[in-house]
Amino acid sequence: MAADLSLPLVAERSFWSTQRIIGVALLAAIVAFAFVTPFVFDGSPTRQSLRNVLGAPTVLEPLGYDHLGRSMLARMSAALRLSLGLAFLSVITAAVPGIALGILAAWKGGWTDRLISLVADAFLALPGLLLVLMFIAIVQDAPWALYVGISLVLWIEYFRLTRSITRALVLSPAVQASQLLGFGPLYIVRRHIWPEIAPLVLTVGAFGAASAIAAIAALSFVSVGVRPPTPELGLMMTELLPYYHEAPHALLQPVVAVFLLILSLNLIAGSNSR
């Protein structure tokens, strides 16, 4: 009896694992920094002041200045807003059609399944970053190209996951029993499929956001992503690398930010998946 009663607790604890809680807390702190800073500190991410070039942190400017004398605090919070916003938008844009198409393909089977799977395979034929790069070449506006390209890469993971889970479930006795009892497709999605997918959607979403953030930073770092003077984490690293000896604190800020951001998302995603 005692063992039976403890079961629900164990189930909940495994979802809210210690590392996931740490990850959520870390992400919450980063989000708070990114979105609260503009209300607390009055500074522009693009305003230059030559006498402050590479200035060290002070009480009024706790993160110091960059090579053009711009406020690092304002730039860091703006860069984080851009990365978080783009990543969040891409994940949502990828998740909704990815899940819907996955359920559709698994449920309908036959040609519907084959057609959607073919499209997914086509996108998988090329490593995601190459696809995003091609989009950047086509679309002039970099943030928009990043958003579309990343979403186009991310939806596949949702599709494949949902499809494989749904395929097993559709044939299961549980779904057969529900159909015999008179329940329709909506009920089966709500009670059978969604509860199985939901925890994994969080994992895939966190990983997707992490790879989106890494891709945005990487492409901007090699000067084909976001263009100056927009503050972006990867771009800031490129700009500040030549001044590493004069102002190591400036270069390390975007480095630490990218690391913490991806770490928090990996922690949320969980260790049992890669």
Partner: peptide, 18 residues
């Protein structure tokens, strides 16, 4: 490995350079 996986390749490279 958790730490390394949280560093995109270019950041890792940057740190190695430094």
């Amino acid at each position: 490995s958790s730490g390394l996986r949280s560093l995109p390749a270019f950041v890792l490279g940057l740190l190695l350079i430094i």
